[in-house]
Amino acid sequence: MIFLQLFITFSKIGIFNFGGGYAMISLIQDEVVNKHHWLTTTEFTDIIAISQSTPGPIGINAATYTGYTAVINAGYPEWAAVLSAVMTSLSIMWLPFILMISISKYLIRHKDSLAVANIFTMLRPTVLGLILAAAIMLMNVENFGSPTDSTFEFIVSCTIFILSFVGTRMYKVHPILMILLCGLAGLIIY
């Protein structure tokens, strides 16, 4: 039952997400692309692009889109997909909400606690690893083209990748502007 699976999967993603939207990309990718095959790698990459250029948290954006697409791909009508999109977005929110309400008083009182600080000295580098993994797993034939079968696409992709990295890292180009420029480049080059 796809609706129940979506609910369980996104509840899990919600409760294990420490460290913001980028860390969540890795969790969603693992569950949605690798395990359940609800989305292909390219669909997933496109969602990240769309999420980065629309307002709101990337986790909600990805949840909404996955909830919609997975149900459409399973052959259900559009209204079921819209319902599923809303349900999936809510499933990512409810567990952290209950947890937050139950421990918020404790956490505020112990916000300088050593135990919490120690857990986070380990969690922060790990979350960084999660984000690195997401980037590594997206460097594949679907997103970059194959060096042997589609050499032209591969070279263009690598160039776009390097320019985007240098542009956003060294010259502080805004991510949305970068996405627009690369889309324009794709339209002209291909």
Partner: peptide, 16 residues
């Protein structure tokens, strides 16, 4: 075509 250009950029945007 547009998304073929955007996809490698997204990977860079995650790495930055």
């Amino acid at each position: 075509k547009i998304f073929m250009g955007i996809r490698p950029c997204v990977v860079a945007l995650i790495l930055t």
